[in-house]
Design a protein around this nucleic acid. Sequence first.
DNA 1: GCATATTTGTCCGTATGTATA
DNA 2: CTATACATACGGACAAATATG
Lengths: 223, 223
Amino acid sequence: MDAELDADRRLIDRASTVELLAAALRERIIKGVYLPGERLVEETIVKSFKVSRNSLREAFRLLTHERLLVHELNRGVFVRKLTVADVVDVYRVRKLVECNAVRSLAGRPRQADDMAEAVAAGDRAKEDGDWLALGTANMMFHQAVASLAESPRVDELMRNVFAELRLVFHTVADPRRLHEPYLDRNKEILAAIEAGDGPGAERLLLKYLEDSEHRIVEAYRSA
Amino acid sequence: MDAELDADRRLIDRASTVELLAAALRERIIKGVYLPGERLVEETIVKSFKVSRNSLREAFRLLTHERLLVHELNRGVFVRKLTVADVVDVYRVRKLVECNAVRSLAGRPRQADDMAEAVAAGDRAKEDGDWLALGTANMMFHQAVASLAESPRVDELMRNVFAELRLVFHTVADPRRLHEPYLDRNKEILAAIEAGDGPGAERLLLKYLEDSEHRIVEAYRSA
DNA sequence: GCATATTTGTCCGTATGTATA
DNA sequence: CTATACATACGGACAAATATG
């Protein structure tokens, strides 16, 4: 495990142990190795990564701020478990940001390439039957949509929001039902964006988001 | 200094040393005790607050995430110094969030009380000639506007954005010129909101934000 | 409810690496 | 190039809170 960190350290010269550790933990959370609600015990992780407790605690603090972990005083850290209210709020933010991003659209934006790439990645994932990868491709697409706003702060906000949303994937039972229907709809949205049709894209996008929210909340209540 | 922390710790029983320390540092940054660009040396602060380096480093990380500090690897932390690009991006976010918040307005919202209070605080500050307090009141007003979105995540985003913006106040020379003209305009915006006139409020707000941005960028370039 | 074991919260000493005068 | 100041990282220690039997 620690060999992994060392390799990264050599590759990216300027990265601290804390950041590398946080990246490794983030990956495990996103991939579902650590599941929502699970407690992360300091000593166990310290041993498996061969880092000091202080470094681990700083990495925890980083991920807590990204809302991937929750910290309970004197009890430790747990993988975040989103409530229905959280999901609703995440979609509130998505509607605000994504719809605004496409609203004032004129001409083919640079981000269209990123979107096309995300769609292609989704197609590949579907063929492979890799539903987690399909979910990832879907988020990549919408991250690209959000980046139409051309704002670093909005980008960061959405990176966090999408990371949060991935926590849901590990809680609901059937990821296929969750992601598959949206591949084609992303293609429609992309077509509208490439045509420079802002209002049309916004209409499709809003409906997409409402359907997606409804489906997740439904699946979530029964879980 | 440490007596201060201890008093707070007794009051709010369930607060960690790190959070109390972060709050104390945040206050000093916002009040301009630590100025933009200034380096915060670990040992000095450890001594003055009588906390451990570990606690201080965690507090630093918290404030770095709030964008009040910047962290340079192996060089330490500095009070953030906003660039013109940062200011422009902050206003991009403000336009996105604040304008959307008032756009779909129906009836008198709960937050109108908060806005009215902020306006009153602004009036008092103006009488006292306390321009820093006037700036604070102005931010309180617009934080209340943003909270029309009724989203915890948007609220947090805007709290950070406004905290960043306060860093500018300590860099430009004349805070009075920066804040005073906007008291009356806030009153106009509030009136439109109280009347349930969403589009009218949005028009006033957008113009306010554009003027404010222009003025700050101008003052900023010459500083 | 009580006593014990476990885990976190905090602090310290030290060794190493990095930036800069 | 050297010296100095500082950040980075580690491991140990003890107190405090929590979980467990």
